[in-house]
């Protein structure tokens, strides 16, 4: 397995629903950072998602790894001693679908159909992140979906990630935070928690 075909390719869809999809990384531990914007394609529709969870587990369910480093001086030594380990685990990441592009138009809401299994997943380049974050309509999806991690954490992570695409990160974050302040007008504690996490 090699990612040489496209530098931004980060994995492949292995499970999908209307609201999210799970992708497996080609390399162990190579999942994109929390909150990154990724995309996959279903025919003419490009689906955008943000990474909300990443896991590394044993290939065989139920089989737990055992501690091996008692006599090793470094952690790298363990993998050197047992090179098969790299093949016994796998890394996966879950993404929440936040929008789609069809006929060159961006929509910040759910696509008509879920992603396809074995669809390639790409990390979006900064220009595309900028393009996508021109509108903050996707924030509502991030706030309202029940997730295994706290929504506040995810919103903060997404905005932090997106802000890196901008030269003026402060302006971007202020604009996004203002949108949040309106969305979360009744939930002050949640707003405060997010603001604390994205403060530049």
């Amino acid at each position: 397995m090699s990612t040489s075909t496209h530098p931004d390719r980060v994995g492949e869809v292995i499970a999908a629903s209307t609201t999210d999809f799970v992708a497996q990384c080609y390399e162990l531990y190579q999942s994109p950072p929390l909150g990154s914007l990724v995309k996959t394609r279903d025919g003419s529709v490009e689906l955008y998602g943000v990474v909300y969870n990443a896991t590394t587990t044993s290939l065989e369910p139920g089989r737990r790894p055992i501690a091996r480093g008692k006599d090793e001086a470094s952690e790298e030594g363990i993998y050197r001693q047992s090179p098969q380990l790299m093949k016994l685990f796998r890394s996966e990441f879950s993404t929440l679908v936040v929008g789609h592009r069809q006929d060159d138009r961006l929509y910040h809401y759910l696509p008509p159909k879920p992603a396809r299994i074995h669809g390639f997943v790409y990390l979006c380049p900064p220009a595309e992140v900028k393009d996508f974050s021109q509108s903050f309509d996707f924030l509502n999806i991030l706030i309202s979906n029940p997730l295994p991690i706290s929504n506040d954490e995810l919103v903060a992570a997404v905005l932090r990630q997106m802000s890196q695409a901008y030269e003026d990160q402060h302006d971007f974050l202020v604009a996004a935070a203002r949108e949040l302040a309106i969305l979360l007008s009744g939930q002050l504690s949640q707003l405060k928690a997010i603001l604390g996490r994205i403060r530049p």
Binding site: A177, L191, L195
Partner: peptide, 19 residues
Amino acid sequence: ITPPDVSDDFIAEVLAGTA
């Protein structure tokens, strides 16, 4: 009742005009 930390410019800037 529990005012935010307005000494933080970022928070002050965000809340002004929204909340």
